[in-house]
Design a protein around this nucleic acid. Structure first.
Lengths: 120, 120
DNA sequence: GGAAATACTGACATTTTTGTCACTATAAAC
DNA sequence: GTTTATAGTGACAAAAATGTCAGTATTTCC
């Protein structure tokens, strides 16, 4: 987010990571590609119906530039393009998993701490 | 980021988590408080000199609202306020750790794949 | 000859996030 | 009585991210 690692060299590991995966939809995209791979653009759109196409493409481009995903174009008509995680991209699995896990914990925590009155 | 869980109920765990920890400086703040706790505002500022105070306070407020951190005010002059991670906040440790770890991997990856010409 | 499918791009508008500046309160120390 | 320290707030400006709309290319199908 904001300052990209290509413009700054004195980053902590955490800031470096966040500059790459911090985009609004990037974790979601990586999550999709961990579920199934490769995926075509139109398939990713089905997974993520809330993202508009323009935005999705932009985030995919950035991930490609950062070498997190690979993009393979098949010279056919109508066009076919496949996206998949690179080797370094696949290594993001623990990040995505820990985020999902914590989200589960947090949801349970919210459920516990909400509407206590209605129980009593 | 953007849509907060308080305004939307049909979130995936991942989106729920990201709506809470997705802010520009939140992982950094959580990282600080995992290193040392409690911390006063002025101490967090020393850890994170790039964040301006206004921004830092805003992110702290949001984390507090989301119950990730606790804020204890001591009624003294000059004021003293201590921040620390809540129980659910402490459980973010694997998230921060996996991000840092991946950042390390990614840096190594970048180092390997940069300036190959100068080596040959 | 026109529509359909896929994966885009460009220009621009809007929204969200982040940053800046000036300002507050309080009591103790000098 | 002025300065110092800490932890803020309010109003606003700037920057960044995201979204919208219209348009492109290609070939096959009808």
């Amino acid at each position: 987010m904001v300052i990209h690692y290509k413009e700054k060299s004195f980053f902590t590991s955490k800031d470096l990571a966040l500059s790459v995966i911090g985009g609004r939809w990037k974790i979601a995209i990586i999550w999709c590609l961990l579920q199934q791979s490769p995926l075509r653009l139109s398939e990713i759109q089905k997974y993520l119906p809330d993202v508009n196409q323009r935005m999705l493409i932009r985030q995919l481009r950035e991930l490609e530039e950062d070498q997190i995903i690979t993009r393979v174009v098949y010279p056919v008509v109508p066009p076919k393009v496949e996206y998949q995680l690179s080797e370094i991209g696949l290594q993001l699995e623990p990040v995505v998993t820990s985020i999902c896990d914590w989200g589960d914990h947090f949801r349970a925590f919210l459920d516990e701490n909400t509407d206590k009155k209605s129980v009593e």
